[in-house]
Amino acid sequence: MYYIGYDIGSSSVKVALVEAKTGKKIVVLHEPQNEMEIVSLHPNWVE
């Protein structure tokens, strides 16, 4: 059995596939390779 995890954020998408019994990482994907810059209307504002 495997676990799959998704992180769909504003600046990137990450996916990981892990073997449930051992916790071994099978594959980790991160797109785009460099996270996009987050632009806010005012300093220190976040989404």
Rank of each mutant, 00 (worst) to 15 (best):
V27F: 01
Y2E: 05
A20M: 08
M1A: 07
V18H: 03
S10A: 13
W45N: 09
H42K: 15
S10H: 07
I8S: 08
K14H: 04
E31L: 03
L29Q: 14
Y3A: 09
E47A: 03
Y3H: 14
G5P: 00
Y2R: 06
E47Q: 01
Y6V: 13
V39C: 08
E31M: 02
E37R: 14
W45F: 12
E19Q: 12
N44I: 12
V39T: 14
D7S: 11
H30W: 04
P32R: 05
N44L: 14
S10C: 07
M1V: 12
V15P: 01
Q33Y: 13
I26P: 02
I4Q: 11
E19A: 11
L29V: 13
V13A: 10
K25D: 06
E31N: 07
E35S: 13
S12V: 03
K24Q: 14
S12R: 03
V39N: 10
L17F: 02
Y3N: 11
I26R: 07
K14W: 00
Y6G: 10
A16H: 01
S11C: 05
Y6R: 09
V13I: 15
L29G: 11
G5F: 04
V39E: 06
G23L: 08
S40K: 10
V46R: 07
K24E: 13
L41M: 15
